[in-house]
């Protein structure tokens, strides 16, 4: 398992392919669910080149991007899928704490944990009964 820091202001991604061609992007399939004070985003990115994965939050936009460079080999004679890079963007409402986002990648699945900011969490106010 690999843990990555979310960068508030990412540096330029190295999008250049050393060998082979850059293959364009598809949007990964995602699950988004909320449990308690945490929103979880799960993105399927099979064949991901984890070294090129970049997750960032900038001006309320959560971006996931992982370019893919095709290998320098003959194309398959039988093809049912095309390997491409993955890219998607989401509006990140202000209720989420961008600094508190954590990400893990395992078996081609990116999991993002988005906690709500303290101020946005529902607070129960204790009532003192006299």
């Amino acid at each position: 398992m690999r843990k990555q820091e979310i960068q508030a202001k990412p540096e330029a991604i190295d999008n250049q392919c050393a060998a082979g061609a850059e293959t364009g992007y598809v949007r990964p399939l995602v699950d988004i669910y909320e449990a308690g004070d945490v929103m979880t985003l799960v993105a399927e990115m099979p064949g991901l080149d984890e070294a090129k994965l970049q997750v960032s939050v900038e001006q309320g936009i959560l971006s996931i991007e992982a370019p893919f460079c095709s290998a320098d080999e003959a194309p398959p004679q039988h093809r049912e899928f095309v390997r491409r890079g993955y890219r998607c963007k989401f509006h990140l409402p202000e209720v989420f704490d961008a600094q508190g986002i954590s990400a893990t990648v395992k078996e081609g699945i990116l999991s993002l944990r988005l906690p709500k900011a303290q101020a946005a969490q529902a607070r129960s106010i204790e009532v003192t009964v006299h």
Binding site: V26, R27, P28, L29, E44, P46, E73, A74, P75, P76, Q77, H78, R79, E80, F81, V82, R84
Partner: peptide, 23 residues
């Protein structure tokens, strides 16, 4: 190639099938 939808997101994985390439 009929395995990609409009957004290209399914990567040949519609209906949970396993997409394979063969060389």
């Amino acid at each position: 190639d009929t395995h990609e939808d409009a957004c290209g997101g399914n990567q040949g994985r519609s209906q949970g099938r396993v997409a394979v390439n063969l060389r």
